[in-house]
Design a protein around this nucleic acid. Structure first.
Length: 563
RNA sequence: UGGGGCGUAGCCAAGUGGUAAGGCACCGGAUUUUGAUUCCGGUAUUCCCAGGUUCGAACCCUGGCGCCCCAGCCA
């Protein structure tokens, strides 16, 4: 059965059938450039751009840059890059609400002339008091009855810079007794003597969201203005403003619920704190739920798009389990990522019956289920590294990897048997294993058909390249980090840095557009800083799915574990 | 206790008066040179609760209950 369409697409389909909007569909994605885009934005991007694509319409990228106090050009560039990376394009240049400042100003004068807006000389605190409360109506501002001429004069002097910040505001004249607080004469313009990243010092008055958004939508010919549920109470104001002025069209605002993901934060305010308080290395820290953080960790854009399609679009509060995102990431990577071998916690093994100084090449497929991806040659020699956790001197019942006297397979190489454990005489620590290989098992299968219970990954000690590998885990210990207390709910083990991981030689050439599966460990992605730092580093995107803890009480090792 | 929303499995989500899709998670089992992948099979006698209408209700009506949002010159 094909996926049912969501309620928004149902509305649009009906609008089209009814011949509304001359058969056009125009949406917009309207971020404020005051932070990086995160997984919550991805939902909105996929919705808005996805609808435009499906209905042969158009989706504008429009920056809601009406508050110069917190906005920045760097964020603009980063947001554009992230939207493109996610896989979406927009026609022409990106739009900015600030492009419309002059038009918006003219609309404001229109409101004044039509006697539905006035300049109020109360300060913020007085306005708050007169607004009333949830259960008590507000009362009129003493400036509510100013004449049109007086209002026009004041408003023009506001624009001309004759007043200080906060001294005057332009307000809509609606209804101070409205049960909807947004309709109690909301502020439309405020004075801010601040440089704007695009308009510079051209303006010292800036329109508020409520005034700007609906009019920007109308100016751009948006047909369906999709936003999150918390704006539902603003819809009457959105419609009211559009009804008071002469606009070319009246876009329809439709609200949907925002995304919450377990163990992550989808609030720009809180993410900003993590960055500012240096809890993470930056907005693109691989532990961040930002698009750039996830990209750096190695999450493919296609996985995020798939995730957004799977969660659906409704009006019910969503709290999505992280296992769904994990599933999407693994599914994409399992298909795309070539396999390689890497040992994170090396334990040396010496193949006693393999001649010193000798080596040989063994072919290994790049993907076990996709022969078209070709193969590479692995170097095999007398001294190898295996994962320390793949050996146990006294193995419990369900441990079927290497142990004294036991035979296992080295992937795509030979069957080996452990003959002797070598310890450091003072510490007692196991420093190497002496093993015997069966030359007749080249490639990994025995001519006599005997089976082994385990296949281990390995690298040749002399030929391996050393790299740094970062293992990431969730940033928070709480499924729904508390908005006031989230700093105390950080996972102290959210990053583990391994400096002497031993990788198969082919990985030295890893490029930043290639995701790898390190066999039996997980998916890894070369860090974007590799070039600058002259150091080979990989970020673990996600572990492989692990069923072993379910079927036995014997869990995985530290290096393999997490998430 | 003003206004606006929302309640279908652990998490999402179809369903719009004709007898509960699908995905993730979970539990079995098969295949496997990754304890991966893949493949089969299982998991809601019931839709927040209580009444009512109807031959028939998750869908309609009435009354409750629970959760979310709103008192920025933020968006």
């Amino acid at each position: 059965m094909s996926k049912p369409i969501d309620f928004i697409r149902q509305i649009i389909t009906k609008d089209l059938a009814d011949g509304k909007n001359n058969g056009k569909v125009v949406t917009r994605f309207p971020p404020e450039p005051n932070g990086y885009l995160h997984i919550g934005h991805a939902k909105s991007i996929c919705l808005n751009f996805g609808i435009a694509r499906e209905f042969s319409g158009q989706c504008n990228l429009r920056f809601d840059d009406t508050n110069p106090a917190r906005e920045d050009e760097d964020f603009v560039r980063q947001i554009e890059a992230d939207v493109k990376w996610l896989g979406f394009q927009w026609q022409g240049k990106s739009h900015h609400a600030s492009d419309y400042f002059e038009q918006l100003y003219q609309f404001a004068e229109q409101l004044i002339e039509r006697k539905v807006a006035y300049v109020c000389s109360l300060d913020a605190e007085q306005i708050r008091v007169l607004r009333g409360t949830l259960t008590e109506v507000g009362s009129d501002s003493p400036y509510r009855q100013r004449t049109t001429e007086e209002n026009l004069d004041f408003f023009r002097r506001m624009r001309a810079g004759e007043f200080c910040d906060g001294e005057q505001v332009l307000r809509a004249k609606i209804d101070m007794a409205s049960p909807n607080l947004n309709m109690r004469d909301p502020v439309l313009y405020r004075i801010r003597h601040l440089r704007h990243h695009l308009t510079g010092t051209q303006w010292c008055i800036y329109p508020t969201y409520d005034f700007t958004h609906c009019l920007s939508d109308a100016i751009e010919g948006v047909t369906h203005s999709l936003c999150t549920l918390e704006f539902e109470d603003h819809r009457p104001l959105y419609d009211w403003i559009l009804q008071q002025v002469d606009v070319p069209c009246h876009p329809q605002q439709i609200e949907f619920s925002r995304l919450s993901l377990d163990y992550t934060l989808t609030s720009k305010r809180m993410l900003t704190r993590l960055v500012n308080e240096k809890v993470v290395s930056g907005w693109d820290d691989p532990r961040m739920p930002t698009l750039s953080g996830m990209r750096r960790r190695g999450v493919p854009a296609a996985a995020i798009r798939d995730f957004c399609n799977r969660i659906g679009v409704t009006r019910k509060d969503q709290q999505i389990e992280s296992s769904l995102l994990d599933f999407c990431i693994r599914q994409q990577l399992d298909h795309d990522a070539p396999r390689a071998m890497a040992v994170l916690d090396p334990l040396k093994i010496i193949i006693t019956n393999y001649p010193a100084g000798q080596s040989e090449l063994l072919p290994a497929p790049n993907h076990p289920n996709r022969p078209e991806l070709g193969h590479r040659q692995l170097l095999f020699s007398r001294e190898l590294y295996i994962e320390r956790s793949d050996f146990m001197e006294n193995p419990p019942k369900k441990f079927f990897r290497l142990a004294p006297g036991r035979e296992v397979r080295l992937r795509y190489a030979y069957l080996i048997r452990c003959e002797e454990v070598i310890r450091d005489t003072s510490s007692g620590e196991i420093i190497a294993l002496r093993c015997h290989y069966d030359p007749l098992t080249r490639g990994g299968s025995a001519a006599d058909g005997r089976k082994v219970k385990a296949t281990l990954h390995w690298v040749s000690a002399a030929h391996a390249v050393t790299a740094q590998v970062r293992l990431y885990d969730r940033l928070f210990t709480a499924p729904t980090p508390d908005s006031d207390n989230f700093i105390n709910e950080l996972n102290t083990d959210s990053i583990t840095v391994i400096n002497n991981a031993q990788l198969e030689a082919s990985l030295a050439q890893a490029t930043d557009d290639c995701h790898y599966q390190f066999e039996r460990l997980g998916y890894f992605y070369p860090d974007s800083n590799n070039q600058q730092k002259q150091q080979l580093a990989f970020n673990r995107t996600i572990t492989l799915r692990d069923n072993r803890s379910k079927k036995s009480t014997y869990g995985k090792s530290n290096t393999g574990d997490s998430q």
